[in-house]
Structure formats: structure tokens, C-alpha cells
Amino acid sequence: MARVVHAIQCIVCPIGCGGEVTVEDGTVTTLTGFTCNKGLAYAAKEVVSPKRMVTTTVRVSGGGLPLLPVVSVAPVPKDRIFDCLNLLRGVSVMAPIAEGEIVVADALGLGVDFRAARDISVVQ
């Protein structure tokens, strides 16, 4: 029976709890050191399929700024972060943009949308 103990540093909130996750035969059996439910969920996931929120920018034309910040609506599998970034590098949008507007839907079939993080109004 394979038993592995992972030291996991929680990144859900700024408190930054550290704890241990025990995995036996591919299943999380015990979690220690985490102080909230979100942290427990994060730690359990981190040892099996780690995910991260992704933020970057896409090009925007017709606005006062050349770039629009975008954010994933949910965490993305860690090993697909750079694929998402490459996808977004090729994206260009037109002002006006409203905060929350979907910029890329279901990126790479991961089931995660990328949304605009701010308004960008039209500048003549």
C-alpha cells in the first residue's frame, strides 16, 4: 500500500496556512493543519490535480489603453496555464468593454471562461 505525505502550503487566502495531506493508493485519507473548508478543499485537490487562477492581458483597440486585463472565472489545471496564455496572446478585442464581459468562452475546452477584469471605454 502506497502512502505518501505531501506538505502543502495553502494559497486560498493571505493567511497562508501550511499543512500535510496524506494520500494512500491515490486517495486522500487525512488532512492536517488547514483551518477552513476552502483550505481543506484546496489541499485535497492540490495533491491530485493542482489548479490555478490565470490572469493576463489581451490586446484592445479603440480604448484609452492598449491592453485589457482578463481573468479566468475558475482555476485552470496547472499544466494548461501556458496553453491558455498562448491562446490569449492571440486574442484582440474592440472597445467598449464592460467588466465581466466574456472575452474567451470555454478556453481550450477546459470549461473555463476568461472575462474582462475592467471597463474600457471608447476613446476617439
Binding site: 487566502c13 486585463p69 481573468v71 477584469a117 475592467r118 471597463d119
Partner: peptide, 15 residues
């Protein structure tokens, strides 16, 4: 997280 109980970007928080 504390103010809006949701994780926002900087521009999102400003918004």
C-alpha cells in the same frame, strides 16, 4: 476576499 468575500483582480476590485 475579506471586503467582498470573493476573489477579485486589482482592476476588478477597483471597478
Amino acid at each position: 476576499l475579506r471586503r467582498f468575500e470573493e476573489e477579485l483582480t486589482g482592476p476588478g476590485y477597483a471597478h
